[in-house]
Measured scan of single mutants.
Amino acid sequence: MAAAAAAGAGPEMVRGQVFDVGPRYTNLSYIGEGAYGMVCSAYDNVNKVRVAIKKISPFEHQTYCQRTLREIKILLRFRHENIIGINDIIRAPTIEQMKDVYIVQDLMETDLYKLLKTQHLSNDHICYFLYQILRGLKYIHSANVLHRDLKPSNLLLNTTCDLKICDFGLARVADPDHDHTGFLTEYVATRWYRAPEIMLNSKGYTKSIDIWSVGCILAEMLSNRPIFPGKHYLDQLNHILGILGSPSQEDLNCIINLKARNYLLSLPHKNKVPWNRLFPNADSKALDLLDKMLTFNPHKRIEVEQALAHPYLEQYYDPSDEPIAEAPFKFDMELDDLPKEKLKELIFEETARFQPGYRS
Rank of each mutant, 00 (worst) to 15 (best):
K138S: 08
R79Q: 05
Y113S: 10
P176D: 07
M98S: 05
L69N: 01
P226M: 08
M293A: 02
S360T: 12
D210G: 00
G32Q: 01
D175G: 00
R353L: 11
K342A: 01
P323I: 01
H310L: 15
I165T: 09
F348E: 08
K55E: 14
V46G: 11
R261D: 04
E96N: 11
P226E: 05
L237N: 06
I83C: 01
E314L: 10
G136R: 12
N276D: 11
L115T: 04
K54M: 13
T185F: 12
K48V: 10
S248W: 12
M13Y: 04
K259P: 10
F331R: 00
W192S: 12
R148F: 12
R277P: 07
L156Q: 14
R301H: 00
L335T: 09
Q236N: 05
S41W: 12
P23D: 04
Y139E: 08
P247R: 00
Q132K: 14
Y312H: 00
K272T: 06
D336E: 13
L222N: 04
S142D: 01
A171G: 06
I140Y: 08
F78R: 09
K73T: 06
Y43L: 13
S41H: 02
L244M: 14
G16I: 00
D283P: 04
N201G: 03
A174H: 06
M13V: 12
I74T: 00
E334W: 03
Y358G: 11
N87K: 15
N45M: 05
R191I: 06
R77W: 12
Y113M: 07
R135E: 02
N224T: 13
D162I: 03
Y358Q: 12
F348S: 02
A42L: 04
A282S: 13
P280I: 03
Y263Q: 01
I74P: 06
A6V: 10
E345M: 06
T63M: 13
T160D: 02
D111W: 00
Q132D: 09
D177G: 02
E96D: 13
L335N: 07
S223M: 11
G245D: 13
H239G: 13
M199L: 15
P23V: 02
R135S: 13
L75I: 07
A3K: 07
R67S: 14
G215Q: 08
D149E: 13
V304S: 11
E197A: 12
G245E: 08
K203T: 11
T185C: 10
H125W: 03
Q17V: 05
N154Q: 08
Y233I: 11
R225G: 05
G37I: 07
F168M: 10
N271R: 07
I72E: 01
A35I: 03
L157D: 06
Q306K: 12
Y193Q: 09
H147T: 11
L346Y: 09
Y312S: 00
I198G: 01
N158T: 13
F329L: 14
Q249Y: 07
A327S: 13
L241E: 11
L130M: 15
